[in-house]
Amino acid sequence: MTESSSENSPENSDSQDSSLENNTGPESQDAPLHRRGIKSYVIRAGRMTPAQNRGLDDVWPRFGLTIAQGRQDLDALFGRQAPRVVEIGFGMGNSLIEQAQTHPETDFIGIEVHAPGVGKLLDEVDKRGLSNLRVYREDALAVLEQCLPEGSLTTLQLFFPDPWPKKKHHKRRIVQPAFVELIRTRLMPGGTFHLATDWEAYAEWMAEVMEIAPGYANTATQETAPYVPRPTFRPLTKFEARGEKLGHGVWDLIYQRQD
């Protein structure tokens, strides 16, 4: 799969909870995923390099954030007023680092549960002298609910989340009505929710959820709807570049908060 944490190969084991088999459609809005105990990710063990350990041990105290800190004052956190971008599931962090370095006028917050990716990103933040990036190593839904103020974000990015391709695991997909409604409340009016996936069936699922979600408008033209051409501002990952050479598709969707 791709370089994002949620982009690790899907958890396809038949030992997963069989109670998921009978619900294959998008979830209702009345049950946030983490409250039901259903996670959209699986934390997989991975070896830590010295640089990754350095990121977690030495750089985390300066750039790491926790749910225990509660609701953030983002102006105070970054020491300025600026556009704010959150990326959920940044994997090894290459794309997020590139964005933060290319756009110093914008503040970025990454959310990732996998230690190697968090450590690598923090090591790069320090090496490159970046000051416009902060990191949560927490469940994204809890961060959105408990830590990020309403109407505070310019953009929320969800690139290549785990597609959970088996029907009995569709309940684990992060893109559900309750999730996209939570994101809408954290976006400022006019803010955008940008999704991307390399699984066509998941792209169709995303479009289905977003097209019926209240308070959003699709930014795609009639010619390409529901998808948009790959935006030049989304960094091209190595995985995606290899996939393009092999003829693999990638689908981008960008929706704007309308109220």
Rank of each mutant, 00 (worst) to 15 (best):
residue 30 D to F: 10
residue 19 S to L: 11
residue 57 D to W: 14
residue 31 A to T: 13
residue 17 D to S: 09
residue 6 S to C: 01
residue 55 G to K: 02
residue 24 T to H: 05
residue 41 Y to C: 01
residue 12 N to H: 11
residue 2 T to C: 03
residue 47 R to H: 12
residue 30 D to P: 00
residue 28 S to T: 11
residue 36 R to D: 07
residue 33 L to G: 07
residue 60 W to C: 05
residue 49 T to A: 03
residue 2 T to D: 15
residue 18 S to A: 15
residue 4 S to V: 00
residue 19 S to N: 11
residue 35 R to F: 06
residue 46 G to Y: 02
residue 13 S to H: 05
residue 31 A to M: 07
residue 48 M to K: 00
residue 11 E to C: 01
residue 24 T to S: 10
residue 24 T to C: 06
residue 59 V to M: 13
residue 52 Q to R: 02
residue 9 S to R: 10
residue 20 L to M: 11
residue 40 S to N: 07
residue 26 P to Y: 05
residue 24 T to Q: 13
residue 29 Q to M: 15
residue 54 R to K: 10
residue 47 R to Y: 04
residue 50 P to Q: 07
residue 17 D to V: 11
residue 13 S to P: 02
residue 58 D to P: 08
residue 37 G to L: 11
residue 32 P to A: 06
residue 4 S to I: 00
residue 58 D to Q: 15
residue 30 D to Q: 13
residue 40 S to H: 07
residue 39 K to S: 12
residue 5 S to A: 12
residue 23 N to M: 08
residue 28 S to D: 09
residue 42 V to Q: 00
residue 4 S to E: 02
residue 38 I to W: 03
residue 23 N to V: 14
residue 25 G to W: 02
residue 32 P to N: 10
residue 49 T to M: 00
residue 54 R to N: 11
residue 60 W to G: 03
residue 56 L to C: 12
residue 11 E to P: 01
residue 61 P to F: 10
residue 14 D to F: 02
residue 5 S to P: 11
residue 44 R to H: 09
residue 46 G to D: 13
residue 51 A to W: 04
residue 8 N to R: 08
residue 50 P to A: 10
residue 6 S to D: 05
residue 4 S to T: 08
residue 5 S to K: 05
residue 11 E to R: 00
residue 22 N to V: 06
residue 62 R to W: 13
residue 3 E to I: 01
residue 27 E to I: 07
residue 21 E to W: 13
residue 16 Q to G: 14
